[in-house]
Design a protein around this nucleic acid. Structure first.
Ligand SMILES: [Zn+2]
Ligand SMILES: [Zn+2]
Ligand SMILES: [Zn+2]
Ligand SMILES: [Zn+2]
Lengths: 132, 132
DNA sequence: CTTGTAAATGTTATATTATTACATAGTGTT
DNA sequence: AACACTATGTAATAATATAACATTTACAAG
């Protein structure tokens, strides 16, 4: 059973915005968009983002400094993420492939390191952009 | 045969610094360290970093906004990178595992997307930090 | 050797992303 | 009520990265 997280006011405002958005959103673009709702300062945005990332409702696309809603009905784990990123149109989608996630979650090498989390970003051209 | 890249003056200064460093270095820490060599502005550092990344002499650790020298005698490709990151001591090392790179380079899904590059970051505790 | 061109450099200013510090308010439990 | 915990508000500042413009260097073609 997945833990229920009741989002606070600011968390909900910001999650709803990101969730409705077509693609990843950047923090200051989020800020601009929620100012009419009373969220005035960067810190209010970053605090909500931190929490939403922590509970897996959104993910950060590290190479873009941007945030996207989880497309897997909230990664229970949020510790195993993979994305595909079009370098032309910047479209991003979350990859949900059980073989891939199994392979990476079980990955280990001889470094003696215990991995408990990973983030993978694939880059390329999406279908649309390829055919231009 | 691997293409020879003759580094320019600034590129060489900055590469040497990163290469000697124990761990990943941040841009402004690099700047601070090369000011005595005449590199005075952020842009000079970022330009050299961009070039060094492009030719695969260094890699950017996206989750840390930091740069590390390639540990694989310069990834010919620099389009297939994997790192392990200790979340306690922040030690980073480049993973060189042919099975993994083969698996990821050949990965494809039904999205119609052609992947030509990936970056993978594993997180966990290194041997040392685990035993504390 | 000179002309053209691409790469690299120098410099100033500015944009973008993220955190520190401190005060206050809400929420649920004992 | 007392407590602990989470969330919020606000101002200031730190850290990361790029834009714009002028100049110089490297090097190949003619
Ligand atoms: Zn997800
Ligand atoms: Zn595209
Ligand atoms: Zn490498
Ligand atoms: Zn460690």
């Amino acid at each position: 059973m997945e833990k229920q997280h009741n989002l606070s006011k600011n968390q909900k405002i910001i999650f709803d915005l990101i969730d409705k958005s077509r693609g990843p959103m950047k923090a200051y673009s989020i800020l601009f968009n929620v100012q009419k709702k009373g969220i005035k300062a960067p810190l209010q945005v970053y605090r909500a983002l931190d929490k939403l990332v922590e509970i897996g409702k959104i993910h950060k696309i590290e190479s873009r400094n941007a945030f996207i809603a989880c497309q897997n009905s909230s990664c229970q784990i949020s510790k195993a993420t993979a994305f595909s990123i079009c370098e032309s149109c910047e479209n991003v989608s979350e990859i949900s492939n059980s073989k891939l996630s199994k392979y990476l979650s079980n990955f280990s090498d001889n470094s003696g390191m215990k991995y408990n989390k990973y983030n993978l970003e694939f880059f390329g051209l999406c279908k649309k952009c390829k055919s231009k």
